[in-house]
Design a protein around this nucleic acid. Sequence first.
DNA 1: AATTTTTTTCAACCAAGTTGCAAAATATCA
DNA 2: TGATATTTTGCAACTTGGTTGAAAAAAATT
Lengths: 146, 146
Amino acid sequence: MSDACDFRGLLERHQVRVTPLRLAVLEALGSASRAFRVREILAHIRRRRRVHKVTVYRILEDFSQRGFVRKIPVEGKAARFELACEHHPPHPHFQCRACGEVECLEPVPLEQVWQELRGPLGHRADRLEIRVAGLCRRCRRARGEP
Amino acid sequence: MSDACDFRGLLERHQVRVTPLRLAVLEALGSASRAFRVREILAHIRRRRRVHKVTVYRILEDFSQRGFVRKIPVEGKAARFELACEHHPPHPHFQCRACGEVECLEPVPLEQVWQELRGPLGHRADRLEIRVAGLCRRCRRARGEP
DNA sequence: AATTTTTTTCAACCAAGTTGCAAAATATCA
DNA sequence: TGATATTTTGCAACTTGGTTGAAAAAAATT
């Protein structure tokens, strides 16, 4: 989920000035096929440089406004973030009830669902999110279940 | 979304002692077809009696464990709660980006989606959530759009 | 080089949610 | 009934995630 993206180019295309920190945030987000908490992004960046949390919050806020980062509401109070560039179209997420990790799933065709939801709504809908909750493989094993 | 439920009976059926506060929490949740923040539930209850927030948090936690209340992760930091008894089977939600309100939508058939997600997962999935985001009718009007 | 603009930091703050323990209410049983 | 045990609620203090406003630092513009 990482190498395919040219982060420098991504920023330029969106007319955002390229800075070490913004690159670092994108790199953190691209480092695995899952959605990250801010504190995880901070930890990732801090392996190399120092950052203030406010900066990261503001960068993420800015990027999601511009649409190349997605903010994903999940169980628990810390929101998750993921890349939303061309290589990462919207997709469902799986969240483990035990460890809280949020994993990205393959996109599923949702035209039907969209139709049904969009039609009779009376609101203007522009985004559809699917979240599957359960117990992930690792946690299941850790509990001694097959 | 309210009157259909016999809250006293609901508690008894689940072997939970019936207390004024527990009834009040259920009554608050049943008061509209949407999902509520804790602070809204508190406000609703406080129109009649006094409560401590901790109590409500604990009651909601307990009820969701037992499965007759659902906790719904949404955009923004405060989680939402809704009834999950027989009369309120799982359903998608619509959340307005502007006002944040979370409205309940009619259930949609999701067997297909379930199949696709459940199969290749490797995890044990037990819950599927759909969240539609956008601009609600009211907020759209408030902005002078048709 | 001087000035303006943008980016990052710092300190202080707010709101949601949690913890441990005491007080109040309720049930159990001699 | 009254004494004891259990459950429920309240209180105070705290943690965590996130926000605000303004200053410092860095970069762009003249």
